[in-house]
């Protein structure tokens, strides 16, 4: 039997694999496939155009800090004082920076679902082991699980 599970990158994934090996599944009967969640280079450190929100946050925080300094200064002349004035200027600045970035970049990007199957695990096991393998996978945060008889063994 083949049991197939998809995972996100997590410590639980390693726990699941180690436990399967511990419970008698030979290492050579486990196949791990690293899935690309992006058309290019999976190990990419460079912020990609799909990093829409992180980039917007960068711009937002920069705006917020600049506005907070100005807001705090002006606040000494305002009834509400520098702290509220600085904080509200920071919030305003963040919204403006964040919003402007999204507005300018809108349409270039597609939104993606949050939890992607980044790893595909295929376990070859006997009929009796299927339940054990499936349960282990579910216990350690697998996203989806499928099982199938090896194609050649089908009657």
């Amino acid at each position: 039997m083949l049991v197939i599970g998809t995972f996100e990158h997590s410590l639980e994934l390693e726990q699941a694999l180690s436990l399967l090996e511990h419970d008698g599944i030979a290492r050579k009967h486990i196949l791990v496939i690293l899935m690309d969640t992006d058309p290019k280079n999976p190990n990419q450190f460079l912020s990609k155009p799909t990093d829409l929100y992180p980039n917007a946050i960068e711009v937002g925080t920069a705006f917020a800090t600049a506005c907070a300094v100005i807001g705090t200064s002006v606040g000494f002349k305002l009834a509400w004082g520098p702290i509220f004035s600085g904080l509200s200027a920071a919030v305003g600045g963040f919204i403006v920076g964040f919003g402007l970035y999204l507005f300018v970049k809108k349409g270039i990007h597609k939104t993606r679902s949050k939890r992607l199957p980044e790893i595909c695990v295929i376990v070859q096991c006997t009929e009796e082991q299927v339940e054990l393998v499936t349960e282990t996978l579910w216990k350690f945060g697998v996203l989806t699980v499928g099982r199938v008889k090896e194609p050649s063994l089908r009657a």
Partner: peptide
């Protein structure tokens, strides 16, 4: 998070590089 992903990929690729699982024997 990115580093975690990179390290785990290096580890998995190394550890399961000799898999004998045949999907279509």
């Amino acid at each position: 998070n990115r580093l975690f992903r990179i390290e785990q990929r290096q580890f998995l690729a190394e550890r399961y590089s000799h898999s004998e699982v045949r999907l279509f024997p």
